[in-house]
């Protein structure tokens, strides 16, 4: 028996919004420790890694490890049927071929349940090595979303250059070029507005704007985003999900031919 309950549907809705542009389907691995989803997009350029810790759910029971392959488009449709302040309970029997989403209104007067067929997904799991990144940038997530949106008008790809002075985002194409420089915040009044750079070595990497823009769909989950970069390895874009866990996106850099 698997059962996980959250007092508020909003977070699950936001999580689905943050993954459904990149993934059509995914396997939710459920265990005592929580729920994990790891899946690459079809082109194997980016990877989504979602972790939700069991102790942050309002109720969590997982008698046996369970892998549930879900169509994320269908899951998003079902979650749209929940009001933001509804309690959500996800339930599945051991070895079941369906999962049930139950929504309960705050006054307990409306209860709805939606059953969804599970899928057998033959997905590859990737081992992601622990990496000491040369540069780790923390910045407001809205600012990152804005930069990705603005620079995508100029080119398919964006160069991110990080030094100890700051981080520079650049795009250049037929229309012209764009550069946005952010300096490290000198005095932090509000932590969520700060730009903080931890640099071991300067890094310059090029990434496809399309994927970066897809990652920014997670912006409503967290005020801050963390970018971790090292030369010639995938970028990690991380959004914390309050005290529930995190969503990390990995993106392969563009490489010299």
């Amino acid at each position: 028996m698997f059962e996980a309950r959250l007092m508020n549907a909003t977070i699950l809705k936001k999580i689905l919004d943050a993954v459904k542009d990149l993934l059509n389907e995914g396997t939710f691995d459920c265990s005592d420790s929580g729920i994990q989803l790891q899946a690459m997009d079809n082109s194997h350029v980016s990877l989504v890694s979602l972790t939700l810790r069991s102790d942050s759910f309002d109720k969590f029971r997982c008698d046996r490890n369970l892998s549930m392959g879900m169509n994320l488009g269908t899951m998003a449709k079902i979650l749209k049927c929940a009001n933001n302040d509804d309690t959500v309970t996800i339930k599945a029997q051991d070895n079941a071929d369906t999962v049930t989403f139950m929504f309960e209104s705050q006054n307990h007067e409306k209860v709805s349940d939606y059953e969804m067929k599970l899928m057998n997904l033959d997905q590859e799991h990737l081992g992601i090595p622990d990496t000491d990144y040369s540069c780790v940038v923390r910045m407001p997530s809205m600012e990152f979303a804005r930069i990705c949106r603005d620079l995508a008008q100029f080119s398919e790809s964006m160069v991110i250059c990080c030094t100890k002075e700051g981080v520079k985002f650049s795009a250049s194409g037929d229309l012209g070029s764009a550069n946005v420089k952010l300096a490290q915040t000198s005095n932090v009044d509000k932590e969520e507005e700060a730009v903080i750079i931890e640099m071991q070595e300067p890094v310059t990497l090029t990434f496809a704007c399309r994927y970066l823009n897809a990652f920014t769909k997670a912006t409503p989950l967290c005020n801050q985003v963390q970018l971790s970069m090292s030369a010639d390895v995938p970028l990690v874009v991380e959004y914390r999900i309050s005290d529930l866990g995190h969503i990390r996106y990995y993106l392969a850099p563009k490489i010299e031919e």
Binding site: S43, H44, V45, S46, L126, A252, K254
Partner: peptide, 14 residues
Amino acid sequence: SQTQGRLDSFFKVI
């Protein structure tokens, strides 16, 4: 010129 890398060349399948 640059080409798009794939994650398979960085991370191993387990």
